[in-house]
């Protein structure tokens, strides 16, 4: 009896220790990765990174064209993906809440949400790059928009479903048309949540590399032409990191640090927004 009890206690202690160790491992990775990133990235970071173009091998330079290219494509992707996503989410939460269509779209959307991004790249290559005959920033932006879309659909639907029906009914009792209720009452109530969703989507695409590899490709020079290949941070990092040149590798680390910091800032901002909504 006593030995059985002791054995159970021992096993419990062992598992407690293991779970502590597992948590330490998980947190340890985060520290290790961020630490290496800060260490190497700060060493590569300089004023020139923000003012000069990507250099040819063996000479110094910056990442200006890549940073601007990433910003342009991210902006366009959000511009295209967000409205469609919000409208689709609206249909699922408002008009077709109990529809067959809604449950199918929800299922498909969840699959799109975690579909491999490289497949999205192949898809856009087939439908945009091949017909146009060349790589372009436009194709890159559309590929990113395809990744933005499911994130926005998901959060819009979830947030609209949180709006109490009594608010809709109160507005309807005043004779307000459905479309106006949705835009003036529901959107307003779900606003912060929906913005959080867009922020998360931006965080998600700002580091995406795979869908850009064969849509926007890369450009060593300054270009804002949407119909031509455009430089972007992730692909520059990919290319520079795998190169044998020390200068390029240094820039790759600096770019990696920039991307990570912006992604972390975005997700912290999204969390802060979501948190402020809960408290109010």
């Amino acid at each position: 009896m006593n030995s059985l009890y002791a054995a159970r206690r021992r096993r419990n202690n062992l598992v407690t220790f293991l779970s502590l160790a597992a948590t330490a491992v998980g947190l340890g990775w985060l520290v290790l990765i961020l630490g290496a990133l800060l260490w190497q990235g700060l060493a590569g970071l300089s004023f020139a990174v923000f003012t000069e173009m990507t250099p040819p091998p063996g000479s110094a330079g910056g990442l200006l064209n890549a940073i601007v290219g990433s910003l342009i494509m991210t902006f366009l992707a959000v511009l295209v993906g967000t409205p469609v996503g919000i409208l689709a989410g609206t249909y699922m939460a408002e008009y077709g809440r109990h529809d067959r269509l809604t449950s199918v779209v929800r299922f498909i959307n969840d699959i799109l949400l975690s579909a491999p991004s490289i497949v999205i790249g192949l898809f856009i290559y087939e439908v945009m790059v091949v017909p146009m005959g060349h790589f372009s920033a436009m194709a890159g932006a559309v590929a990113l928009a395809v990744i933005v879309l499911p994130v926005v659909v998901r959060t819009t639907e979830d947030m609209l479903l949180l709006v109490p029906d009594t608010q809709r009914e109160a507005a309807a009792a005043l004779g307000t048309p459905r479309a106006v209720i949705i835009r003036k009452v529901c959107y307003k109530a779900a606003q912060t949540g929906m913005i959080t969703g867009v922020l998360l989507a931006v965080a998600r695409i700002s580091g995406e590399t795979a869908p850009l590899l064969f849509t926007s490709l890369n450009n060593q020079f300054w270009s804002t032409n949407l119909n031509a290949p455009m430089a972007n941070l992730p692909v520059v990092i990919f290319q520079f990191a795998l190169s044998p040149y020390a200068d390029w590798q240094k820039l790759a680390w600096a770019g990696a640090l920039l991307i990570t910091l912006s992604v972390l800032a975005l997700s912290i901002a999204a969390r802060a927004l979501a948190g402020s909504r809960k408290q109010s």
């Binding site: 469609v84 689709a88 609206t90 699922m92 008009y95 799109l112 497949v119 395809v146 879309l149 479309a179």
Partner: peptide, 26 residues
């Protein structure tokens, strides 16, 4: 009202078409 309703519905259908588009293109 009708226009808005159809816009949302078409967007929802666009999500479906997107996935079928991916499959067809591949």
């Amino acid at each position: 009202d009708t226009v808005f309703r159809w816009m949302t519905k078409l967007s929802a259908i666009a999500v479906l078409l997107l996935l079928s588009g991916v499959i067809i293109a591949l």
